[in-house]
Measured scan of single mutants.
Amino acid sequence: MAAGGDHGSPDSYRSPLASRYASPEMCFVFSDRYKFRTWRQLWLWLAEAEQTLGLPITDEQIQEMKSNLENIDFKMAAEEEKRLRHDVMAHVHTFGHCCPKAAGIIHLGATSCYVGDNTDLIILRNALDLLLPKLARVISRLADFAKERASLPTLGFTHFQPAQLTTVGKRCCLWIQDLCMDLQNLKRVRDDLRFRGVKGTTGTQASFLQLFEGDDHKVEQLDKMVTEKAGFKRAFIITGQTYTRKVDIEVLSVLASLGASVHKICTDIRLLANLKEMEEPFEKQQIGSSAMPYKRNPMRSERCCSLARHLMTLVMDPLQTASVQWFERTLDDSANRRICLAEAFLTADTILNTLQNISEGLVVYPKVIERRIRQELPFMATENIIMAMVKAGGSRQDCHEKIRVLSQQAASVVKQEGGDNDLIERIQVDAYFSPIHSQLDHLLDPSSFTGRASQQVQRFLEEEVYPLLKPYESVMKVKAELCL
């Protein structure tokens, strides 16, 4: 049975990233139509530049190519590739079939990587351009969430054990800070992308030097003109047959890092959902379990974690691919890159769409948070109580021993009897502590235990987050809708 299948058929496997999760716009960027249309555009740009620099290419040939950029006979191309065992030459023939007058000058002087690699770089750039505003929107939604809850005390956790208090907004800023680093890295790697350009079979530009009869300047002009037509500021000066596969490492490393950030955020949300302090959106008709109707599973956060793990592992592909590119190139890269580049971007696209949807509907339960604080705060307040007693004339050592005994009794009630923490009640009825009984409410005010959390939130948002989001103001209103 021949390899390949009808990918629109229910009898043929289709990647869930495309069929179930990723956005239509990201799927289109990695589609065959987008790819092969870009090949034709690159052939047109090459012909236009070659004509401008004096090669015998007519206006009629150029116009014929322009008129057929979208006229792609995919069936013919597939048949040609089956016959020739070469995808680029299959599309040269297919393009030439609908451009008979231009057929002889299509791909003039070029090698397969002229269309293959340059198209990949265009796709990487455009895919990054799709991700950047999506990530900015996630940051914006979380920034709104953090600002609104900047002063809401909550129990902090280290080692997932109760620690000092923080605020809900401050905790959210930990998430935002990681995503801001990801946004900066995505922008950097996007701006650092260079075009492969017009380089020939081993990167020496020998074929173009021959076409222009040894004119170095025209060869350099050709490279520059096509690079500018493709919208790049610069091209690699040095290439082998391909652009260095280190570029793929750079791009997928940034995406993998984004995956790590999203995994951490969504894990926190899942843990908070278990504590009943916070939940992701839950639709009115949504079913959490087929057997347990009360369940409210954090399905979206779980999906993000599941896909983020996949995204983090994909960076190993370009690392290994770059390491086995012998001399000017081997074909070890080809099949692998067809999979890992598309999957990385479709996965990143999915987790950003999902995280935006989550961040637009996060639900906080202040009463649950308050109750958990009441359970733990008495123990945390013991040092403040000791200091207040010393100020009232008591002995630190005597007070410490009193607190120690009462704390152990209260802990026994919590752990052995399943009761509430009654340390404060014990202190309130103990005559030894009568000098500070009137101060206990103040000493137990949760806001006095959150330090500068709310001020940190305000400063972080104003100095770091809002300036970073400013270039994306025009796209901030787009909502994230999930079908599944």
Rank of each mutant, 00 (worst) to 15 (best):
Val478Trp: 15
Met65Glu: 00
Trp43Ala: 06
Pro467Thr: 01
Ala143Val: 07
Leu469Glu: 15
Val29Ile: 07
Arg303Gly: 04
Leu482Lys: 13
Ala381Ile: 00
Cys304Leu: 10
Leu314Met: 08
Leu211Gln: 00
Lys218Ser: 13
Gln51Leu: 05
Cys113Ile: 02
Arg426Gln: 14
Leu193Glu: 08
Cys99Trp: 02
Glu228Met: 02
Pro366Glu: 15
Ser447Asp: 07
Ser19Pro: 00
Glu360Asp: 15
Ile265Asn: 13
Arg309Asn: 14
Glu80Phe: 10
Leu346Ala: 05
Glu473Asp: 15
Arg404Ser: 05
Leu152Gly: 08
Ser412Gln: 14
Arg372Val: 13
Ser306Met: 11
Arg194Tyr: 05
Gly5Val: 14
Ser448Glu: 04
Ile385Asn: 02
Gly5Asp: 09
Gln456His: 11
Ile369Asn: 15
Glu148Cys: 06
Met312Cys: 13
Asp192Pro: 01
Glu64Ser: 13
Arg137Met: 10
Ser323Ile: 00
His437Tyr: 05
Arg404Lys: 12
Phe460Pro: 09
Arg371Val: 01
Ala150Asp: 00
Val92Thr: 00
Asn185Arg: 08
Leu255Val: 08
Arg309Trp: 08
Leu165Cys: 01
Asn71Gln: 13
Arg404Gly: 10
Leu272Pro: 12
Ser12Gly: 13
Leu44Cys: 03
Val92Gln: 01
Ser448Leu: 07
Cys266Lys: 04
Ile369Gln: 02
Pro56His: 12
Ala335Val: 10
Pro133Tyr: 06
Trp326Thr: 06
Thr58Glu: 08
Thr354Pro: 09
Ala78Ile: 02
Val315Arg: 11
Arg426Val: 05
Phe30Gly: 06
Ser67Asn: 12
Pro281Lys: 02
Arg188Gly: 10
Arg459Cys: 12
Gln41Phe: 15
Gly203Phe: 01
Val363Tyr: 13
Ile403Asn: 13
Ile424Asp: 10
Ile139Asn: 10
Glu328His: 02
Lys134His: 01
Lys264Met: 07
Ile427Gln: 14
Arg300Met: 00
Leu252Asn: 05
Cys266Pro: 15
Leu55Ala: 06
Asn126Val: 02
Pro24Trp: 08
Thr52Val: 01
Glu328Val: 04
Cys173Ile: 05
Lys284Ile: 00
Thr204Gln: 01
Phe327Ala: 04
Thr244Ile: 02
Glu79Thr: 00
Ser67Ala: 00
Met299Phe: 13
Gln416Pro: 11
Ala344Gly: 11
His97Leu: 04
Gln320Val: 12
Lys415Asp: 15
Arg452Gly: 07
Arg245Lys: 04
Ala22Gly: 14
Val475Trp: 15
Lys470Ile: 08
Ile339Arg: 04
Ile249Arg: 01
Arg296Cys: 07
Asp445Arg: 13
Ala410Arg: 15
Gly203Leu: 03
Ala77Arg: 04
Thr52Cys: 12
Gln408Thr: 13
Ala103Met: 04
Thr350Asp: 03
Asp32Pro: 06
Ile176Met: 08
Thr166Gly: 01
Ile238Gln: 10
Tyr34Cys: 11
Thr350Cys: 10
Ser447Arg: 08
Ile269Met: 04
Arg329Tyr: 03
Lys477Ser: 12
Ala90Gln: 08
Leu352Val: 12
Asp422Ala: 14
Ala322Arg: 10
Phe160Ala: 03
Thr111Ile: 14
Pro446Arg: 14
Met299Gly: 10
Thr154Pro: 13
Ala348Ser: 12
Gln375Glu: 15
Ile249Val: 09
Cys399Val: 06
Leu271His: 02
Leu258Asp: 07
Gly156Leu: 01
Phe232Asn: 01
Ser359Asn: 02
Arg137Trp: 06
Gln408Lys: 03
Lys75Ser: 13
Asn297Met: 15
Thr58Ile: 04
Gln177Ala: 09
Lys35Glu: 06
Gly4Tyr: 11
Leu209Ala: 02
His159Leu: 06
Asp223Val: 03
Leu179Ser: 02
Ala49Arg: 02
Ser207Lys: 11
Arg329Pro: 06
Met26Gln: 06
Glu473His: 07
Gln210Leu: 01
Leu69Met: 02
Pro298Glu: 01
Lys264Glu: 01
Phe208Asn: 01
Val138Thr: 13
Val92Met: 14
Ile436Tyr: 09
His93Asn: 10
Ala206Leu: 06
